[in-house]
Design a protein around this nucleic acid. Structure first.
Lengths: 345, 345
DNA sequence: TTGTATGCGTTATCAC
DNA sequence: GTGATAACGCATACAA
C-alpha cells in the first residue's frame, strides 16, 4: 500500500503495468471478465494493483465503450414517507443489477431546466420520480439516445422515447370517493398539493367527478406543496366550521397532516366525526398511531416495473405499464353504512 | 433538433464543430466560462449545439482535467425518517454547490467491501452516512487521494485522511438518562439496534453508565436492525410484565415503535405509566400523533458541517467537527419531579 | 499469450 | 481569435 500523497491523482493502469512489468493492455485484460492473460502474469498484475490501490477508471471505460451503467434519478422531497421508501427500494435494486445511481434533487436547482445536467455524465437512462419532465430534457434525451422513465408523470406530448409507469390514479380517486360515500359523508373535501402537473391532480379530479356523480358536494383545497404542513393548513381552514365530514388527501403525508390536526388540535373524533382517506400507503400510514385508510400503489410492483423499464434495451420501443391500485381499509374512515358498491372501473 | 435515432451515441463536440464550420477547440472554448471566442462564432456554435442537442461530456472533462465534481454518498435505510431528511438536505445542498451525488445504497450490495466501486467513478469525496467504513475503502481512498467524510461513524484506526462529523452521542445518552431519572423512573431499558459499530452504541453506553451512576437498573435490548419493527419487538418483550417504567430508543424510529406499541397494543399510558425518549429528532417525532421527547442532533448543523468537509481542498489535513446535542421536551416523558440536574458534561 | 497502435470526447498548449 | 495537436485512462483490433 502506498502512503497517501497530497494532490495525488488516481493510480492508473500504467502505474500498475510499470510495477508488474507488463503493458497497459495486459492490465486491462486482467480486469476484463473474458480477458486472455496467463495465470502467472494475471497474478502479478493483481498483486501490483492491490499494492497500489488500483481501481479501473470506469469513466474512461464508458468513454471508450460508449456504454454507460449510470442511471440518473431525479426527484425531490426525499423526506416524504412514501418517496423515501420508493427511493430506498429503487436505489438498492439498481446496485443489485450493477447499475449506478446518479441522483439529482431538484430542490437544489434554481430552474427545472437545470436537470439536463444529468446528461453531461452520459447516463443511459433518466428516471423521473417527481416533477414534470421539462421539454428540454425530453428533447435532449431523444437527441442523445438516452432513455427516460417517467413514474406517475403525465404522458409526454409526442410519442417520445419514454417509458411510462403509471399507478391508476383515476381509479384510486374513485375508490376514495366511493369509500367516503359509503361511510355516509354528506359534504367532503379534497386536499391537492399545488404542483401544476402530476398524478395528484388526476386523483383529485377523479375523486371530484365521482362525488359529483353521487350528488355529494366537494370542496377543493389547493394551496401549498405536497407536505405534512399542507395537511395541517387545510384541516384548520376546512374544519373551522361544521359541515365537512370527509377529507381525501391526495398523498398520505397530506392526509396525515389532516388527520393529526383534526384529532389533536381540533379535538375531532376520527372517524367518528370526520373520515380521512389518503393515497400511497406509505409505511407510517400503517403505524398504530395513524391507521390511515388509504389507496395503495404497491411499492414492490412499482419498483419492479421501474427496473424492467430501466433494463430495457436502448432501442426498445416506448412502453407503458400500469400499476393497479387498491383500497386499504384501516380505521380513519367510518364503517360502511351499506354494502359498498363495486367500483365502476 | 435531430430526430431520435436508434442506438445513437451522444452527440459530441466534433458533431457541433462540423455543423458550425469550426474546429473542436472552438466548440470547447464556447462552452468554457473564460473561453476566447468571437461573439459571432460563439453564437453559431451555440446555435449548432442547441440544434443537435449537444451537451459537454463531463466524463471526458474529468478524465482530462483529473478533477471531479462527483461526490459518492453511501448509506442505507433511506426510508428511516431521520436519514431521509438528512439525505434530502444533503443532496439538495450538493447540487446547490454544483456537485453531483453518486449514491450507493449498501442494502443492494452483497458485501460491504463492494462499496469501493464508488472509486471507479473517480469521486473526489466519499461520504459515509451509515455503516462502518471498511478498511479496504479507507485504504483505497488514501491511495488515490480521495477524501472521506464520516458522519457519526467511529474514528478510523489510524489518522487516516478522513473528516469526522460527530454528534455528541455520549452527551445525548447522558441527557436521555438524566431526563428519565428526573421523571422518576425506577427501572429503565435501552433499545439498541444490532449494528456492530456506530454512534448508536455510544448513545446506549453513555445512557447505561449514567443510569448506573444514579443507581437505576437498566435492561438492555439488542436485537434487530434500526427499524420501527425493532421498537415493536422490544416493547412487547420488555413490557410483558410490570417493572420497566422508562425506555430509551437509540433512534427516533425505534422509540416510535416502542411508543406506539405501548400505547395502542399494550394499552399503557405514555407518559403516565411509561416514559419513552428517542434520539435524532426526526420530523415525524414532532407530529401531534407522537410528540416524542428526544435528543436532537440538529439537521442544519449536521448538513453544514458535512458540506464544509466536502468542500475542503483535497490536501487539507483531516478535520473533526462536533455537533452539539440538545434535549427536546415534548410529551412522551413524565414531567420532571425535581428541578432537573444540570448535565454533567 | 503478449505488446503496439488507435480512438473515445474533452481541454490545454502552441502555433498562426 | 482560431485551428492543429497532445494527453487523460481505458479497451480493442491487430501484429508479433
Amino acid at each position: 500500500m502506498t502512503a497517501p500523497e497530497k494532490g495525488a491523482r488516481f493510480v492508473s493502469s500504467a502505474d500498475v503495468a510499470r510495477l508488474a512489468g507488463v503493458s497497459r493492455s495486459a492490465v486491462s485484460r486482467a480486469f476484463t471478465p473474458g480477458g486472455c492473460v496467463s495465470p502467472p502474469t494475471r497474478a502479478r498484475i493483481l498483486a501490483a494493483a492491490e499494492k497500489l490501490g488500483y481501481r479501473v477508471n470506469r469513466l474512461a471505460r464508458i468513454l471508450h465503450q460508449d456504454r454507460s451503467d449510470l442511471v440518473g434519478v431525479v426527484g425531490a422531497n426525499f423526506a416524504n414517507p412514501y418517496i423515501s421508501a420508493q427511493f430506498d427500494a429503487l436505489s438498492a435494486e439498481l446496485h443489485r443489477r450493477n447499475l449506478q445511481c446518479l441522483l439529482l434533487n431538484t430542490a437544489g436547482m434554481a430552474e427545472s431546466s437545470e436537470l439536463v445536467r444529468l446528461l453531461d455524465y452520459r447516463v443511459r437512462t433518466v428516471v423521473l420520480l417527481s416533477g414534470a419532465a421539462p421539454d428540454r430534457l425530453m428533447r435532449l434525451c431523444a437527441a442523445n439516445g438516452a432513455r427516460m422513465v417517467l413514474i406517475n408523470r403525465p404522458a409526454p406530448p409526442k410519442g417520445a422515447l419514454a417509458d411510462l409507469i403509471l399507478a391508476d390514479s383515476a381509479a384510486g380517486g374513485r375508490l376514495a370517493a366511493g369509500r367516503l360515500a359509503a361511510a355516509g359523508c354528506r359534504h367532503v373535501a379534497v386536499v391537492v398539493s399545488g404542483s401544476r402537473t402530476s398524478a395528484k391532480r388526476v386523483r383529485a379530479r377523479a375523486f371530484c367527478d365521482e362525488m359529483t356523480a353521487r350528488g355529494i358536494p366537494v370542496t377543493r383545497w389547493e394551496k401549498g406543496p405536497n407536505s405534512y404542513q399542507t395537511g395541517i393548513d387545510a384541516a384548520r381552514a376546512l374544519l373551522a366550521g361544521p359541515g365537512i365530514d370527509g377529507i381525501f388527501g391526495v398523498t398520505d403525508e397530506i392526509a396525515l397532516g389532516v388527520l393529526n390536526t383534526a384529532r389533536f388540535e381540533l379535538g375531532l373524533a376520527v372517524p367518528g366525526e370526520l373520515s380521512v382517506i389518503g393515497f400511497d400507503d406509505a409505511p407510517i400510514s400503517d403505524w398504530s398511531s395513524h391507521r390511515l385508510t388509504t389507496i395503495r400503489q404497491s411499492l414492490p410492483a412499482l419498483t419492479r416495473a421501474t427496473m424492467e423499464a430501466i433494463e430495457r434495451p436502448a432501442d426498445a420501443p416506448p412502453n407503458r405499464s400500469d400499476i393497479p391500485v387498491e383500497l386499504v381499509e384501516r380505521s380513519s374512515v367510518a364503517p360502511a353504512r351499506y354494502k359498498r358498491r363495486t367500483d365502476r372501473t
